[in-house]
Amino acid sequence: MYNFVRKTKDTISEAWVKFVLMLIFLLPLVILASLLNKSWMVIQTSGIGDLLFSSVWRPMAGQFGFKPFIISSVYVTVLGLIITAPVCLLSAIYLTYYGSKRMTAFMQPIIDILAGIPSVIYGVWGVLIIVPFTGRFLAPLFGYESTGFSILSGGLVLAVMLIPFILNILIEIFRTVPHEQMEASLSLGASKWESIKHVAVRRSLPGIVSAFALGLSRAFGETIAVLMVVGNVVGIPRSPFDTGYPLPALIANNYGEMLSIPMFDSALMFAALVLLMVVVCFNLMSRYVIIFMEKRQ
């Protein structure tokens, strides 16, 4: 009797585990298929080329040109990465090579908490601090007129949100540099900074690149925080102080109306599909770089 119960439990759990395994292999395909299926209508009527490269955005007339949104997205993302990159790199080097044990123990929870803060909180902070800062201080400084709701504010908020994400990966990468190599360089008479520059950083270069690529893909999909500070006006931004309207913000802002305008839902799902493809591509790329790096060692 007991053996029967035990066998049954084994069989059931075995079946569940296999089911779960199947599920995880299907999930990416299902996500892709469902978005593709939904956006198929707009792709067929407008064509991929028009969708991606046209700037005419008139949903009521059935014209969906995503160029302004794509440009905004790229603008905000790249700006965010450029601002965050030096901060992450410098802090990562400091925490791995200069900081004392106590220092690292003090900073790790701070980085973890920064990573855990929800994006809507970053958004609130952006509205309260970054937007006035850009509008009242940075814009006049460079001779622009701006409310502060701008590409630059989006970039700054993104930069801050990316810090814990990229920093953690960088620290991990620097830790894999073997001590012997650093010691070899030091014993040749190179200073600590020179050793870091020529050994640690050079050796980790592919890793650093892929960390930034991962950061880029994370930034590209970030929605709420950016939406709250970027202005959301359709149009191709000409300067960082212009308003922008990135893709994720477009999707998030229009969920209410999307079923009331024909094809609008299809167009928004197309936007989600574009996001998915971009993110997956960056992901694969950075993964490839990491594998390449491991092979070289």
């Binding site: 978005l35 994370r218 994720p248 999707i251 928004l268 989600a272």
Partner: peptide
């Protein structure tokens, strides 16, 4: 791969 997908895409 799944980990990298932004939450707005999961929402959609």
């Amino acid at each position: 791969l799944l980990w990298g997908i932004p939450s707005i895409v999961y929402g959609a």
